[in-house]
Structures are given as structure tokens and as C-alpha cells.
Amino acid sequence: MNIYLPIAELSVNIFIILSLGGAVGFLSGMLGLGGGFLMTPLLMFIGIPPNVAVATSANQIVAASVSGALSHWRQGLVDVKMGMYLLLGGLFGSFTGIWIFKLLSNAGQIETFLAIVYFILLFSIGTLMLIESSQVIRDRIRKRTVKRKLHYHNWAHRLPFKVRFYSSNLYISVIPPIIIGYFIGILSATMGIGGSFILIPSMIYFLGMPTSKVIGTSLFQIIFITAFVTLLHATSTFAVDAVLAFSLILSSVIGAQLGVIFTNKFRGEELRALLAIIVLAVAFKIGTDLLIQPTDIFSISVIKELY
């Protein structure tokens, strides 16, 4: 059965869209990641134009992060103040991101840009996850426990404009959270992702936040960043496809809940190793598409007249 997407202006098989949303939702529920970094490239693989894939993916993440943030909020695991500083940087970052996106679109390079950044991103995430999970698996087999540092003191503690974050038990400068937020905002607007996989380690290693508060705070700020990115795309690239977003949200929220149920039955590191392999496979596909001579070295794009 086909469904017509009013903004992408093409019809797609509804079952492909639903299973894509379900699968990405399942993975994100299972691993606690947003999944936007898989959603956008997979949408482009099935023929959705890059601008629609990015803008609509951002819209879908709003739903995923609201759903995830609520449970952390109830348990008091959101540092709202830290979230606000990240958000402040993020708002400026999304403006920059949209500007970059439009610049590259007009130059006809957005597809290549997305392919390159997605390749780098997915390749690094996949490799890191594979190394990390295989180490944990190896340590488990050797029955070794690894001691980890609880708190990191670094340059973030020496910069000016220090503020006390009671919730996270921190007294650090506001500059690092704003800069991190700014960077995440650019990524969100250009790539249609939440950026939690970069945000979470940054909050732990650069800001020294307690790991218990990190996921909730990251989801909290992602809600607002992706909401803002959706608005920016809706008003400047006109590429948010509500029908596509609705189908993806519907299937991904169900997939995410199934993923949560599933995750209790398996070990985290084995699931992460599995996801690492999926991520590397997507990276490999994007990478080879860039390097192998395309079957047609010409491509066309229609300049949309808005009426």
C-alpha cells in the first residue's frame, strides 16, 4: 500500500516507512540512543530527498525525546539549569546550522556534505562502540572489573563565569556547556539528529556531570533543540513532511517500547556490539557510494516553485 508524502511529493510504500521507524525506534529503545543518526541516512537510502529527510527526522526526534525525557524527569534525573545553558548555545547553533544547510543546498553540495559527515560520524561511533563493547565482553569473560574515575577536573573548571549547578553538584564555567550546545545545534540542524551520542560523552568528560543525570538532561535539551530545528526548517527550507513524520513517530514509539522490553533480556554490551555492526554497515554503504564512480555521474534537481 502506498502513501503520498505531500512535501517530499512522491509516494512511498507505507510498510517500508513503518518498518524503518519501528526498527530505528527498537534500536533506540534498546540502547537508549535517539537513533536520528540512523534515521536520516536510511530515509535517504529509500529515496527521500535529503532536505526532507533531515527536517522530518528532527521532527520525529521531538517525539522520541519527549517520550524518553518523561521517565527521567519523574525520577528527578534532569539538571534543568545545565539543560538551559546547553539550550542557549544550541539555539545559536541551530541558526548557524540552517545557514550552512541552505548555503550547501544552493551550491548543490548538500548530498555530498551529508554523505561525508555521516560517514565520519557513523564510522567513528561504530568503531568506538565495537571496541568498547568487545572490551567489556572480554573483561567479563576474564572476570575483571574496571575501576572508573568518578569526577574529572579539567579546563572546564578553570574558565570564568562560574555558576553553581546544584542538581549536578558542579561549580563550573558556563562557557563549555554553551559551546557544546552550540556545536550540537549545528549538527542537529544540518544532519537531522539529536546528537545525544556526542552530547552524553561531552557532558561526562568535559563538564564532569554525574552519569545518572546525563541522559535525562541530554534528552531534555534535545526536545527543545529538535523542536527549534523543526521550526527553522519548516520556515526556511519548507521540508518538514508531516505525513512522513507522523508515520515515523507512530512506528518508532512502538518500536522503542518493544526495545525497552527486549533490552532486559539481553546483556547491554552484546546489544551495543550488534548496533555497532549495523552502524558500521550503514557507514560502509555511504562510504562506498562516495568513492565508487556512480552509475550516472549526472544528477538533476528541480527548483521548487512555492505556491
Binding site: N59, Q60, V62, A63, A64, S65, V66, S67, L70, I223, A227, T230, L231, H233, A234, T235, V240, A242, A245, F246, I249, L250, V253, I254, A256, Q257
Partner: peptide, 15 residues
């Protein structure tokens, strides 16, 4: 855009 955001937020909350 606002409708798209609210719909997404609402669906996330409901689910």
C-alpha cells in the same frame, strides 16, 4: 512548524 512540533510532542507524551 508549530503544529508539527506539538503533534510530535503530544505523541511522545501519549506513548
Amino acid at each position: 512548524g508549530l503544529l508539527a512540533v506539538f503533534l510530535a510532542g503530544f505523541m511522545g507524551w501519549i506513548s
